[in-house]
């Protein structure tokens, strides 16, 4: 279940969180990435639960520090806790987040079955982020960061990243 943070926490706190982005995909806020699980506010103390995307992802440490920095100068003291359960899935990326990924040149995750077909059977499902062609090919299941796979477009010949479906 994804908690609707925008309508359940004070706007001031939501706006501070929405300014923190994934250091490796700066167009994606941590809200749109879906890594903020829960926010508890008691008077001026904010407790935030953060869900790691991939366990070894070094970006998680940076996101924690960036959250603390974002709250500096505000009226709140903040505590960030990494939680493993429930586990993050790529379904938690918002529609806005998916659009931002695409505009940034990273193909957003497709649903599980299509992901499996694209990564295992080499089906042409992931559209090129440069020209939109579906005539694309998987180069490697592992890309520039833990969350991505590397594709190339057979029409415009550009390489591009695909944000893997993780469920």
């Amino acid at each position: 279940m994804i908690i609707d943070l925008k309508h359940t926490i004070p706007a001031e706190i939501f706006d501070l969180l929405a300014k923190v982005t994934d250091p490796e995909i700066p167009v994606l806020s941590i809200i749109d990435l879906g890594v903020v699980h829960q926010v508890e506010v008691t008077q001026n103390e904010v407790y935030i639960e953060l869900m790691p995307t991939y366990t070894g992802c070094p970006a998680m440490d940076v996101m924690q520090e960036d959250i603390v920095k974002a709250f500096e100068g505000s009226n709140y003291s903040v505590q960030v806790q990494l939680i493993l359960s429930p586990a993050w899935t790529s379904d938690r990326i918002s529609q806005k987040g998916k659009a931002a990924l695409k505009a940034y040149g990273v193909a957003p995750p497709v649903e599980t079955t299509a992901d499996k077909a694209a990564l295992l059977e080499g089906a042409n499902i992931i559209a090129c982020t440069n020209c939109g062609s579906q005539h694309t090919q998987l180069v490697s299941q592992f890309g520039s960061t833990a969350c991505k796979a590397l594709f190339k477009c057979l029409d415009c010949l550009e390489p591009f990243d695909y944000f893997k479906c993780l469920k």
Partner: peptide
């Protein structure tokens, strides 16, 4: 890149 990614996951 793949082997390094796997190492990072581990």
């Amino acid at each position: 890149i793949a082997l390094t990614n796997i190492s990072l996951d581990l």
